[in-house]
Design a protein around this nucleic acid. Structure first.
Lengths: 337, 337
DNA sequence: TTGAAAGCGTTACCAC
DNA sequence: GTGGTAACGCTTTCAA
């Protein structure tokens, strides 16, 4: 192996043509005669030429990257959205550049800065809440931008997501139909989880519209909250948790934690207390009793984002807002009281 | 906002210095006076400057990428390893380029091909089983290579992982101590899950060494198998599942599925049947009864890989094999019979 | 401690 | 069909 790398210039010299023609030939540009193309190809192979994608990305300012931030990988829904997105983008020649924010907007800002350094051709963010600096950063780039999962009031660009109001209204209506009135919401501490706070606000609004009493808030600690926190908080409260007749949990894992704690307390679910979750995680279906939840087509969110990106990268610009309808999945944890 | 991007040249003009000094300042080169550095940093922020990694990669011929494959994102352990790795690499200036194989070696090969086009400076693979073409691919590149989670007999490069034999020996010994003898292993169909097959083989070997009868194999269907498959398979078998006295599951989610199915069948766990899982997933701790499992320090695997990469990128070459010790976490599903 | 010059390998844009 | 020229934004190198 000689040290110096083989470039288009070397191939050009070998065939007595210009680098420009080599560039065209290797990209199968039909304006180069077929004979020249085959000769160039042969020479390239003979010399062991390897195309330099970095140089091309530098020159064309097209990286072939789509940057993506997710709050966490360890979440069946986000993981499924990632899968949907990457599957749908497989044929496009684009690659996903992923970063995890750990549910922190400051971390998101830092991450976006790093991701932008790779010149992505589009940016996909989870959620609709960001730091001001991050908004400036992406505004300056004028990149195709998609926010997903949430449906922000004023999206930065395009949006694909679920209406939190619609989703929680389904839950509240269902609980009212099955005879509950005294609701509590179990979620992360105030100010640590925007998505959770939005769900809580939506529950409160729905409860008001049904003429129900004030919904109690049960603080499961700083986000992210999951099974462990849900279980611990309910265990701490003890049997008094059944002073409420419905416990609306911010997510299925939290609901499962609450359900387990109830089992340990000897409380009957749904007899003493109804429990609901959010997100149709596998644990909701497999738990005994099966947990009432709201299904969100996570995979489809990814697919829709991919379709949108396709259009955006092809030059389309009209802002779009794609709403994914949530669906109630009634389980045994909220069976008729 | 105008489309023209802000470069080091613009920052330099703003502070009345040369682009070269800006370059040095932004890399925290100590040869630039602290005062100049802070002034330059401030100007960069003010102008919304974003570093162009593509240009730097082009110039230095170093991509700043570490390529990484994971079987799936929707797995608490792999997600945690990713976190450990990315946190530990945060200061290094390297970026992770992630791909998911969906537990298929063919998909892994395709993915690695795509990842290599980005000229990563190192490659991290999950597992020790790969296609021949993939092995050739990486051998030709002569890249620093780390296989993690498994500890292959003949690693392609370096390895950081857990001894499956050691892990499953803990489980078997524990079940023997608590009085069980008639074991069954619940996992994915033959040939669809290497890691699972290795666990099963290790269970069989450990059982033999304890002089136990043959371990029955219960097929939960093609990989990946999780809660749903575990529950469905046990439900299908029905109360006869208790002809065994211990059900060793390939993972905690599968074990949780089995546990739920037992609850529905009216079987007492651990009275009629002991159940164990693998991986210390959150569900194992929160389930009622708590599921006996094996803890693997997933986060630490990521950290160790990061440390190894550091050394490798600094030029170290001696093949290394880092073994992470598994730990038994006894739960109520295998309490004394 | 700072700066000037020279490229890295490719492709856009014009010529011919 | 083909070629010449000029960048893209950064860092290496050498000089001050």
């Amino acid at each position: 192996m000689s040290g110096a790398r083989v470039t288009m210039r070397d191939v050009a010299r070998a065939v007595g043509m210009s680098p420009m023609t080599v560039s065209r030939a290797l990209r199968s540009d039909s304006s180069v005669s077929l004979e020249t193309r085959t000769r160039i190809r042969a020479a390239a192979d003979r010399l062991g030429y390897v195309y330099d994608g970095t140089a091309a990305a530098f020159r064309t300012r097209k990286s072939g990257f789509v940057a993506l931030t997710l709050p966490s990988l360890n979440n069946a829904n986000f993981a499924e959205t990632y899968r949907g997105l990457s599957e749908a983008m497989a044929g496009s020649g684009m690659q996903l550049l992923l970063g995890a924010t750990n549910y922190q907007v400051e971390k998101e800002e830092e991450l976006v800065r790093q991701l932008l350094a790779r010149n992505p051709e589009a940016l996909v963010l989870t959620g609709g809440h960001h730091t001001a600096a991050m908004r400036d950063l992406v505004a300056a780039r004028n990149l195709p931008l998609v926010e997903m999962w949430d449906l922000p009031e004023a999206p930065l660009g395009h949006a694909v997501g679920v209406s939190t109001e619609a989703a929680m209204a389904l839950v509240v209506a269902h609980l009212v139909e099955t005879g509950r009135r005294r609701f509590a919401f179990l979620g992360a501490s105030e100010g640590t989880d925007r998505r959770g706070a939005a769900r809580r606000a939506a529950v409160e609004a729905a409860a008001r519209s049904h003429g129900l009493p004030q919904v109690a808030f049960i603080d499961a600690g700083p986000a992210p909250v999951s099974m462990r926190q849900g279980a611990a908080r309910v265990a701490e409260i003890g049997r008094e948790i059944a002073d409420h007749d419905a416990l609306i949990c911010v997510s299925d894992p939290v609901a499962f934690g609450a359900l387990s704690a109830c089992a340990r307390l000897g409380l009957d679910v749904p007899g003493d207390l109804a429990i609901t979750g959010f997100g149709q995680f596998e644990v909701a279906e497999v738990a005994v009793p099966q947990i009432t939840t709201v299904a969100v087509e996570a995979h489809r969110i990814g697919e829709e984002v991919a379709g949108l990106l396709d259009a955006l990268l092809a030059g389309e610009a009209a802002p779009r807002r794609i709403e994914i309808a949530p669906r109630l999945v009634p389980g045994a944890t909220s069976a008729q009281a």
